[in-house]
């Protein structure tokens, strides 16, 4: 049997009060792995986030004109924040 893992679509609700939005997809062999992978790839394990994963093959879509939402990046690891770095005086475009 080939090692190919099926595709799952990922939906994330970043904060209480907002709804789930589509953020992308992951490959995984099963639901539990898909959830873990989605948590790692799309939320970097930020707390308080709700994640749905759905096998891509199970999604029924209306035709053209369907709307995909945009998504926010996770905010947990400070190294990712450009403000964390001391940017010397005069250094532009950083």
């Amino acid at each position: 049997m080939s090692g190919q893992w099926p595709l799952w679509e990922v939906f994330v609700r970043p904060r209480r009060g907002l709804s789930h939005t589509h953020v992308g997809s992951v490959h995984a062999p099963d639901a539990a792995t898909a959830l873990q992978n989605a948590r790692d790839v799309y939320t970097r394990r930020q707390e308080g986030v709700s994640i749905w994963v759905v096998p891509a093959a199970q999604i029924t879509a209306s035709s053209p004109d369907e709307k995909d939402a945009y998504f926010d990046p996770a905010a947990d690891k400070i190294y990712r924040h450009p403000t964390f770095y001391h940017v010397p005086e005069g250094a532009k475009h950083l």
């Binding site: 893992w5 992951v26 490959h27 995984a28 873990q36 992978n37 790692d40 790839v41 970097r44 394990r45 690891k77």
Partner: peptide, 14 residues
């Protein structure tokens, strides 16, 4: 062994 696992192992290492 898979790209998703790259991200997972790096998370654990971090």
């Amino acid at each position: 062994p898979e790209m998703e696992e790259e991200v997972a192992l790096a998370n654990i290492a971090l």
